[in-house]
Every structure is written in structure tokens, then in C-alpha cells.
Simulated assay, not measured.
Amino acid sequence: MALAKDIETLKDIQCEEGKCVLSVYLNTDRANQNQQKGEWKIRLKNGLKRLEEYLVAAGNEEELKSYKKLRKKVEKEVKGNQSKLLKSVVIFASDDQDLWSVHYLQLPVETSFHWESRPILDQLEKLQKSFPKSAIIMPNLDEVKILDIDLGEIKDTRTYFFDPETEDWRFKDGIASSDRMASSANHVDDYQQRFDENRNRFYKKIAMNIEGMKKEKKWESVYIIGEPEAAQSLESQLNVDVSLTIKKNLKNSDSSKVLAHVFE
């Protein structure tokens, strides 16, 4: 579930008695000078240990038993998914409420650990205001990839390709650009020349789709990342404000690298 939707669900969670919800905010940003050697591992261990010591001192055996189970689950999740770590990981967990919510974010958080009667959402709500819903548009000749972003997470990815037969854009159905062009390899040069000559006209059509999606998905920011000619051409056809244009081909880059270029 996308984090923005998750927040609304989390607001309704409340323990019937005592405390039963573990909230974890862990900064894992390697760009931070204090994180160069994986210091987050120590902070994770110490933060969870302190909560357990608090529960031991409080003498509530039921809560302690529940917490220990969740602590092991959290440690296994984070340590087992180190390749997914971006700038932070946020976890909400509760046995009593059948809750397990994990999000790896491209946005930094302040490391903190909470054992309360409800999820602690203050940092997420602050991020929600600072980083509203947005889109990253990635044009690459006859393909345009659209990333739907919320709170630094990719909610959805859509790719459109240009159909030379109809001179229109179609939602990608698994046929790669190279496969489409390979079937008529003798015409590749002619096709590319024709596309280059009509680039603005062709991009104007996909721009209309993007404008409609902006209204439908309520994007507050739009970013463009692509090779210089493609990025500049698409931006010129869009009738929306573009927050940032990055003239660089990241078509084959990991999503984390794409997000980093926007949110650094």
C-alpha cells in the first residue's frame, strides 16, 4: 500500500488496553557523514534494546512478550533487506492490531523508536507536507515512462510507446522498443529521422495525456529526466509547470538512482 494511503489507515489504529504498537524511524542515508560505516545498524540495535529495557522495568509481561516478537521481526526485515535501503526505513508493527507496515524511503527521517498505544505519525505527516504528490516523466525517443511518486515512494509506473502506424502513443504491453524496431531493421534510420523531424508534434500528444494524469492523480510537482533533446522537447509541449528538468539518460537506471536525482 502506498504510504500516503497507509497514513490514513494508521490514524485509526488504537490499542484497546495498554500499549501494543511499535513505530520505528531509521535513518539509513549513506550520504550522511554519520552513516558512512553503516552506523544505522548500531542505532537500530540500541534503540530496540532501550525499549525492551523500559518494558522489563515496567513489569508488563504481556507487552514485553509482544514487543520481543515484533523486535525480532523488525530486525530480520531491515537486516535482510539491506539492498533496499535508501535514505530511511519506516516500520509500524503490532500483533494486537494485526499491523505490519514497512516503507523504504528516498527521504531522510530522524531515527526514533516508540512503543505506544497508537502509531506515531508525526514525521510522516511532516514529510507529507514537505514532499507532496509528484511525477517523474522520463522521455526516451519513442518511449515515455511516467513514475507516480508519493512521499518519495514510487506508487505506480506507466510506459507509453509511439506507434508509427497510427502516429499515436499506446500503453506499453510488454513489447520493447528494440523489438518493435527490429522487425523492420532496414527502416530504423528512416524511422528515427522521421521521429526527430516530428518530435515536437508527437510529444504534444503524450503531453496531453500527462496533463490529464496530473489532474487525475493530483500531482503538485512534475519532474522531467531524459536525454537533452527529448527532455527539452517534452517540456516545451507540456502545459504544466515543470519543477525540475534533468537532461540525462537514466532509462536503464535503478529506481533508487532516479529518485535520488530528484530528491537529493
Rank of each mutant, 00 (worst) to 15 (best):
L48V: 14
D254N: 14
E63L: 09
L127Y: 02
L244M: 14
D96A: 13
Y160E: 03
L259H: 03
L234M: 10
V90D: 05
Y223F: 14
I136M: 09
E75M: 07
K215F: 06
L26G: 11
F171T: 08
E220P: 04
V56S: 04
Y223R: 06
N249H: 08
Q232P: 00
E53Q: 11
D98E: 13
A231W: 00
F202M: 10
F195M: 12
I146G: 07
K248V: 07
Q14C: 05
D142L: 09
E75H: 12
Q97D: 05
D179K: 08
L238C: 08
I136E: 04
D150V: 06
D29A: 02
D122W: 02
W40G: 10
Q82F: 03
K215A: 14
F92G: 05
R201I: 10
G59I: 10
I13R: 13
V242T: 08
S255D: 14
F195W: 05
C15L: 01
L64K: 08
F92A: 08
I206P: 00
N140R: 15
E52A: 11
E153K: 02
K248F: 01
S177P: 00
N200T: 11
W219D: 01
V89N: 15
Y54F: 15
E75I: 10
F113M: 15
A230H: 11
A231F: 02
I149T: 02
E62N: 15
Q97V: 05
R43D: 14
K84F: 12
I7F: 06
S236D: 09
K65Y: 08
N200R: 14
K251C: 06
K5A: 06
S88A: 04
A176M: 13
N34R: 07
E39W: 08
K126N: 12
L124E: 03
Y104Q: 06
N34K: 15
A4R: 12
L107G: 07
G174P: 11
H187K: 05
Y67K: 06
E62I: 11
D142V: 14
L3W: 01
K49C: 04
V102Y: 03
Q35V: 08
I175V: 13
R118P: 02
Q36H: 13
I175C: 04
F171W: 07
V262D: 04
K133M: 04
F92M: 11
I146F: 00
S221G: 02
D189T: 14
L234H: 08
K215E: 15
E227Q: 12
R170M: 12
